[in-house]
C-alpha cells in the first residue's frame, strides 16, 4: 500500500532547530567559561560548568524530541499479499493483492506449473523488512 505524501510543518522544524542552536551556543559559552578557569576553581566557574552541562542535556532532549516527531510524521509502508494455491498440482503462488480478491475465490491467474486456475487461500499484510513497526 502506498501512502500519499503528507504535508510536513516546516515552520515547526525551523523553530525547533533555532532553539536547539541557541541552547547549544549558550551552553558552549558557559562550558568554555567554566573550563577556562579550572586551575582556580571558584563557585562561579563551577556554576558555569553545571549550567553548560545542563544546557547540553536540554539540547540533547530537544534534538531527540525533534527526531521522534519526524519519525511519527512518516507513514510506515506495508504491502498486502494474496496467496494462491493450485488444487491440482499444489503449487503456491504469492502476488500483490488486487481489488476484488477474497479468500476462497477462484483466481483468474494461471498456475505456472499446470496452467489451471488456483484458489485464493490467504490475504495478509506484511511490513517490508527493516520497517516492522506498524503503528
Amino acid at each position: 500500500m502506498s501512502d500519499g505524501k503528507k504535508k510536513v510543518p516546516y515552520g515547526f522544524y525551523i523553530i525547533w532547530v533555532l532553539s536547539l542552536a541557541g541552547i547549544l551556543i549558550i551552553s558552549t559559552v558557559f562550558l568554555y567559561l567554566g573550563l577556562s578557569n579550572l586551575k582556580e576553581i571558584t563557585g562561579e566557574s563551577f556554576l558555569n560548568i553545571i549550567m553548560g552541562i545542563a544546557g547540553l542535556g536540554i539540547a540533547a532532549k530537544v534534538g531527540y524530541d525533534m527526531f521522534k516527531a519526524r519519525i511519527s510524521l512518516k507513514e510506515e509502508a506495508f504491502e498486502v499479499l494474496t496467496e494462491l494455491l493450485c488444487v491440482i498440482c499444489g503449487e503456491k503462488i504469492l502476488r500483490e493483492f488486487k481489488e476484488g480478491d477474497y479468500v476462497g475465490k477462484v483466481s483468474e491467474d494461471v498456475c505456472p506449473k499446470c496452467q489451471s486456475s488456483p484458489s485464493i487461500v490467504a490475504i495478509y499484510s506484511r511490513t517490508p523488512k527493516g520497517k516492522e513497526k506498524r503503528y
Binding site: F78, I123, Y124, R134
Partner: peptide
C-alpha cells in the same frame, strides 16, 4: 485491538 481493525497481519492469517 488495533490489529483487529486494520488489514490482517501475516502471523494472524498463518494461525488459522
Amino acid at each position: 485491538h488495533l490489529d483487529a481493525i486494520t488489514s490482517m497481519g501475516e502471523e494472524i492469517a498463518r494461525s488459522a
